[in-house]
Structure formats: structure tokens, C-alpha cells
Amino acid sequence: MNTFKLIKTIAPLTCCIMLCSCGSTNNSDVNNNNNTSSQTLKDTSAPKVKINLKDYALMGFKGYDTIGDPSNYGIDTEKMVQDNSEAFGGSTPAIISDVSEYFDISIDKHLLSNGDVIHMLVGDRYKELSDKYNVDVNADGLEFTVSGLTELQEIDPFDSAEVTFTDPLDGTQSRICSFNIMGCYKWVDCNIDKGVANIGDTVKITFTSALEGRTVEQAFAEDGFKPTQTEKEYIVE
């Protein structure tokens, strides 16, 4: 949607009516002047045109399920003005641009999953449109159900884990614990809780998120995966 900003300069129009009497006053002339003047006043008696923003709301969704985002959302002010051009006094680019300035668009939720319900927020300035144009704008019902996000591929990340316990050849029961993850997970870290343990001990490998403020499941989702588990214990052999 293209929007333009137009700076309007309105030169004040001053009308001076001079009534000069020379002898008697012609009342019919005065009345005729008053009638002509009153005909130029704007007609404010027409009822305001009711506009439901839901009819002009745009909303799309993109990304993976559980971490999706809204996309291409907003109010189609161009269509709204064109559909109600009489109430707006026209549908020029200048009017469309002006009307667009009255909406402060935001969304109340991100990191979306299919089936989530979100709301489009438009601020409060739109209420001022009724003072400038012959419209009554209703912003109720700007609610949308998330759909179309790409489904995640379910995996067990430990299927690609190689865990080894190496004998340090020191005559003890201790073993050096190490692991290798064959899968490529861009936003996921992995660690083992013990570097050295005795035979029969339990060690645990845990996947964690490398993204601040994200869960490990959301980090996996960045690569399109849904892990069946994110930690696993192994017995030292």
C-alpha cells in the first residue's frame, strides 16, 4: 500500500459584506443576501457513514508453528476511502494518506502457533476521524485465528548423539565422558554434566537454547524441528 504525506496550506478567506444605506433600507435585498450566504454552509445534518474496520483489516502469518509471526497486516485505508468516498469527500491520494495517519497498528502476540487467537490494535486516534470526516469508525472485532504456519518435523535429537566413555588407563574405574552430536542445529547448544565419571555412574546430556529469551523448543523450531526430548541420561560403561 503506497502512502503519501501532503502538507496542506489553506489561505484564509475573508468575506466582507458592506451594507450602505442611502435613505431607506431595502429589506428584501438584505434577506436575499442572507439566503444566498446560508446556502454556502456545509450540510452537517447527513447521518455519518458507519465503517467497520474488520471489513478492511489485512492479516497474514509466516514462519514455523510455535514461533510464527504476523505478516502483511494493517488496515487497507485505500479501499476503505474508495468504498466510502462520498463520506470522505473524495478518494484522492492526499485523503487516503491523511486517513492512514489515524491508525497506529500493532499486534498483541508474537511467537505464534496454529490455532492461536491474536488481536490487531489500531490505537485511539482513529476516533478523531469522525470529527474531520462524515464517518463513524468501529474498531471492534479485530480478532484473528492463526493458521498456515509450517508444521515442525518431529525428531529425537539423541538419535544423532554419539556418547563415548574412554578408559584413562590409570587403573581406576573412572572414565572420560564425551559426546558428539551429528545433527546440525543452528540455535541449540548441548552439554554433558560430568567430564569424568566412574563405571556405573549416570551422566546427563542436555540441549539448551542459544537464543536469549527463547526456550529450547523454540530454538529447535528455528530449524524446523520439534524435539521429542531435550535431555537424556546414560550409564557409564
Rank of each mutant, 00 (worst) to 15 (best):
K50W: 00
F103W: 05
Y126G: 03
I107Y: 03
F88K: 00
G60R: 05
V163I: 12
D124I: 01
S100D: 14
M18I: 11
Q153W: 02
N27T: 03
N180R: 09
D156V: 05
T44V: 07
K109V: 02
F165H: 12
K50P: 03
K109C: 07
C184V: 10
T44C: 06
I67A: 03
I107W: 06
Y64H: 10
L121W: 04
N138S: 12
T14Q: 06
F144P: 10
S147Q: 08
L58Q: 05
S24L: 14
M182V: 14
D189W: 05
I95Q: 01
V99S: 08
K204H: 06
F165V: 12
K127M: 00
S37V: 00
S37Q: 02
T36P: 03
W187H: 14
G123E: 03
T228D: 06
K62Y: 04
S174F: 02
A161I: 14
I181L: 04
D159T: 14
L13P: 00
K204Q: 14
G148P: 11
V196P: 01
E233N: 11
A219W: 04
D98L: 06
P47F: 00
G60V: 02
K62R: 13
C16H: 05
G200H: 15
E128M: 00
H110R: 07
D69I: 04
E128F: 00
I199Y: 10
I107H: 05
S97I: 01
A197K: 09
C177S: 05
N31M: 10
C184S: 06
T77W: 01
L121M: 14
N26E: 07
Y64V: 07
C190L: 05
M1Y: 03
E86D: 08
N84F: 05
I17C: 09
E237T: 15
S130L: 00
N134L: 11
E212R: 01
T3F: 06
G141L: 12
H110S: 09
F179W: 12
